[in-house]
């Protein structure tokens, strides 16, 4: 098989800018998705059934429908409503964040619920408010416990970001598709971006691992 490295070289600047956008989309998605996921997890755990219902529905919708469709809805429905025109990068960040938040919310919820009830009671008995107890006692412990599954969600998010190529946000997969179409080649573009994705996901899990080790108490 003649593997055309020279063609990859031609596309190197595009792969580079695509990689940067992929990192940007993923980073924004992780950040917003985690914050939003936490809010949704807390919302879903509210005792009042009516108050928690919207959060339950949110998780149901975003986990139950294809991310691809969510991206299209956000791109052609939501973003034009807000900005007055569609914008692939903004839509990509929003859709990825909203979707990841649903999964991350469930990770948070299971983490929070796995913390012994006595921790909350001890904190409350000392006069801390529910919010203070969450912030200083429950969440730090839960966070440590959910880091591995959270890392999995981050990696999934990074790979899912490839779906925004559908709305012409020029990230890695988008450029691979363009290169494939231009040269009628399959392996050169797709093996190249696979390698890049692999490097990105390995780096991400290395970061998560380090965080895990740093948070482990002696």
């Amino acid at each position: 098989m003649d593997f055309r490295f020279d063609l990859i070289w031609n596309y190197a600047p595009f792969f580079l800018s695509g990689t940067l956008l992929t990192i940007g989309l993923s980073f924004a998605g992780i950040l917003i998705g985690t914050l939003l996921g936490l809010v949704i997890a807390l919302g879903k755990m509210m005792r009042n059934k009516w108050l928690s219902l919207p959060f339950v529905c949110y998780i149901g919708f975003f986990r139950g429908t294809p991310l691809f469709v969510q991206i299209l809805i956000v791109h052609f429905g939501v973003v034009p409503l807000i900005l007055g025109q569609s914008n692939g990068i903004v839509a990509g960040i929003i859709a990825l964040s909203l979707n990841a938040a649903a999964y991350i919310a469930e990770v948070f919820r299971s983490g929070i619920q796995s913390i012994d009830k006595g921790q909350m009671e001890a904190a409350r008995s000392l006069g801390m408010s529910h919010a203070q107890a969450m912030r200083y006692i429950i969440l730090p412990q839960a966070f440590k416990r959910i880091l591995p599954p959270l890392g999995n969600e981050f990696i999934a998010l990074l790979k899912d970001s490839s779906l925004v190529s559908a709305i012409a946000a020029p990230e890695l997969t988008y450029w691979a598709q363009q290169m494939g179409a231009e040269y009628f080649k399959v392996w050169e573009p797709y093996l190249t971006i696979s390698l890049i994705y692999l490097i990105l996901t390995l780096s991400l899990s290395a970061v998560v691992n380090r965080l895990e080790r740093r948070m482990a108490t002696e």
Binding site: D116, Q119, A122, A123, S125, L126, G127, M128, I137
Partner: peptide, 20 residues
């Protein structure tokens, strides 16, 4: 109630120290 609890100390069978 938080103010009341701050004035009433409680010690539990299972200690419930904050492990982190």
């Amino acid at each position: 109630i938080n103010k009341i609890r701050a004035e009433v100390g409680m010690v539990f069978q299972q200690f419930n120290l904050f492990p982190h």
